[in-house]
Design a protein around this nucleic acid. Structure first.
Length: 421
RNA sequence: GGAGGAGUGCCCGAGUGGCUAAAGGGGACGGACUGUAAAUCCGUUGGCUAUGCCUACGUUGGUUCGAAUCCAACCUCCUCCA
């Protein structure tokens, strides 16, 4: 296996060229072979997402952007929703087992994730992207058959060499057979997609490398040439994992993070990250990316707005992006206020006695009551533009503006308008 | 195979019986400054139905009124010897 990077020979495919240029390639099983294959003609590629949370987050955006580029360049994406694998839980690089999800929960998560995915890849037409659920085939297997057909293709020896499970074994934490088999299932997914849809490439996060390699190897035993590609781990210039804020992940689904909150996240990008993020998360021509990245000082703020608006357009659509841009401008240029609610809470809650902390947590600006309390005590929380430093403060009808709305701000940049209905 | 050292909170790392939800640093978040940036300075940094309760110092058991701290076994990593 070749780790990453630059092919020794000249590139032949536009796809590899674009993905490299965009910074979307971290590792590849065989970049030259993939390049040659992509140059030959349309290829079918897949990226899988487990339904472990109710929404995708910005970390998932990179494989999805890869899918978009491939589609744009004439290839066909398949997005696999892990209705089957989510029942197992991927142990990769995890210190302990995930709590097992209920089937109902998985189904609900999948429905939400599906909506985000449908925005990101074009499902229309005969050549459109496919959206499939691996429960379709994984739940069909009979245990003995599965063991005989696939269990014989894997050795425990090989499986234990993967870093993704090694950490768990080293830490002497239990790794159940259930979890250990996850990589087999993902490998089988790949082979199944190869058989059903002639899929020959799997794209995933760098933590998926082991799972992907297993699929490629399984394919080889079946006489197929499959390829694997990982996107880089998303980090900020300051070196920390990105996509998680103190209060949690940056969700793609509007119910979990409002389009305005999403826009704000990108608008708040550090100077040093602007160029890289424009490459990774927008589809602006490289020439334009370079022009924007070259802006100096405060002018870079324009580039950040363009970044935010572009990404928001891709994820939430042009309408929401435009509104977010307008609200952002109004909010930070002068006395403007949010005009549309970013969050909803039941009006009834007021009567029952609604605490300020609860509201802060509800907006996602704090992950727990304790954190919300600290924010309030530190003078970082404002209601209707007034700093409120009493954590026991309750929200009453009198706090609401017209239309039963409450303006809440945490820090200078995070603002919400809560609509009570 | 033998001898020694180590495993701590998101990360690094101090702590060798109560004053330890655990020094210090990084990161993150809030405040000041600014360009909704960076750097700098100040503050905060386990959870909860909260004058209390729960969870946390590799794992499991033990000693003790009381353990991250002592004992035993186990697991993993490092160094030295064979």
């Amino acid at each position: 296996m070749i780790e990453a990077g630059k092919p020794a020979t000249k590139l032949r495919s536009e796809a590899v060229e674009v993905l490299l240029e965009r910074g979307l390639i971290h590792q590849c099983t065989d970049i030259e072979a993939l390049d040659a294959r992509l140059a030959e003609g349309p290829l079918t590629a897949y990226a899988g997402f487990d339904a472990t949370a109710a929404s995708l987050h910005v970390g998932h955006l990179m494989p999805l952007m890869t899918m978009r580029w491939l589609q744009k360049l004439g290839h066909r994406p398949i997005v696999v929703l892990g209705g089957g694998t989510s029942q197992i839980g991927d142990p990769s690089f995890r210190k302990d087992a995930r709590p097992l999800l209920e089937e109902r929960q998985i189904a609900a998560n999948i429905a939400t994730i599906r909506r985000s995915v449908e925005r990101l890849v074009d499902m229309e037409g005969a050549d459109g992207a496919l959206l499939v659920d691996n429960a379709e085939w994984l739940t069909e297997f009979k245990f003995l058959e599965f063991l005989r057909d696939y269990g014989s293709q894997f050795t425990v020896n090989r499986m234990m060499t993967f870093d993704s499970v090694k950490s768990r074994l080293d830490a002497q934490m239990p790794l159940t057979v259930l979890e250990f088999c996850y990589m087999m299932l993902q490998a089988v997914d790949f082979l199944e997609l190869a058989k059903r849809h002639d899929c020959a490439l799997q794209v995933g996060g760098s933590d998926q490398w082991g799972n992907i390699v297993n699929g490629v190897e399984l394919g080889r035993r079946d006489g197929r040439k499959l390829h694997g590609l990982t996107v880089p781990l998303l980090t900020t210039a300051s070196g920390s994992k990105m996509g998680k804020t103190a209060a949690g992940a940056v969700w793609l689904h509007p119910e979990h993070l409002s389009p305005f909150g999403f826009w704000q996240f990108w608008r708040n990008t550090a100077d040093a990250d602007v160029a890289r993020f424009l490459r990774l998360f927008t589809e602006l021509p490289i020439r334009e990316v370079e022009r924007l990245a070259a802006l100096k000082g405060a002018e870079l703020n324009e580039a950040k707005k363009i970044l935010a608006t572009q990404v928001t357009t891709i994820v939430h659509g042009p309408e929401d992006a435009r509104m977010a841009l307008e609200q952002g401008d109004a909010l930070f240029s002068g006395e403007g206020e949010l005009s549309e609610p970013t969050h909803q809470m039941p009006l009834k809650a007021l009567a029952d006695g609604l605490g300020l902390l609860e509201v802060v947590v509800h907006t996602g600006f704090a992950a727990s009551n304790g954190e919300a309390r600290r924010l309030v005590e530190g003078g970082g929380v404002r209601i209707n533009n007034q700093i409120v430093d009493d954590p026991r403060r309750r929200i009453a009808t009198g706090d609401l503006a017209a239309n039963d709305r409450l303006a809440l701000a945490v820090g200078k940049r995070r603002k919400a308008l809560i609509g009570f209905v």
